[in-house]
């Protein structure tokens, strides 16, 4: 099955954004922008998701939730920070309850700028994430195959 391309599934979580980026993420999935043509699908279940779209910064209360969502996703996984708040904390950076961007809690691969991020920019981020996911998937399988051979030689 390793040579078959997979359709990455998408999980969206709203960190502490103002809602602007959230509804732009949703607008991306609707027919006008139709991000599903790149072979992705939106899901609400972290256990089946491959790409995490996170909007908004991290605060003290949602930090454990974000960490848990990231840990529940199967490997390999890609994280996209959508909007300037998820990248750096944005306009709310100096607020007492904001710890910073999404990268303060989980490793972020792709940063999508904008306030609110435009659907075109989000789609660009998703396309990059799909490519990165395929690359990581191949590396993952190559590593697995390598381990398999080692086991055979050790047994033989």
């Amino acid at each position: 099955m390793a040579n078959i391309k997979r359709s990455p599934w998408l999980l969206h979580y709203d960190g502490s954004s103002c809602n602007g980026c959230d509804i732009e993420v949703l607008a991306c999935l609707t027919p006008v922008y139709d991000a599903e043509r790149f072979g992705i699908m939106n899901t609400g279940d972290p256990m089946q998701a491959d790409i995490l779209l996170i909007t908004g910064g991290i605060n003290a209360q949602n930090q454990p939730t974000v960490k848990q969502l990231y840990e529940q996703m199967p490997r390999p996984k890609v994280v996209v920070a959508v909007g300037v708040c998820a990248c750096t904390g944005g306009v709310f950076k100096e607020c007492y309850n904001i710890l910073g961007g999404a990268d303060t809690t989980i490793p972020v691969d792709i940063y999508v700028p904008g306030c609110a991020a435009r659907p075109q920019a989000i789609i660009d981020g998703i396309v990059k994430a799909v490519d990165l996911f395929q690359k990581r998937l191949e590396e993952h399988y190559a590593k697995k195959r390598g381990q398999g051979r080692n086991e055979v030689s050790a047994n033989g």
Partner: peptide, 11 residues
């Protein structure tokens, strides 16, 4: 509630 609390009023 409190998952999106930013403390905007304090700005």
């Amino acid at each position: 509630i409190g998952f999106i609390h930013r403390g905007l009023e304090s700005l």
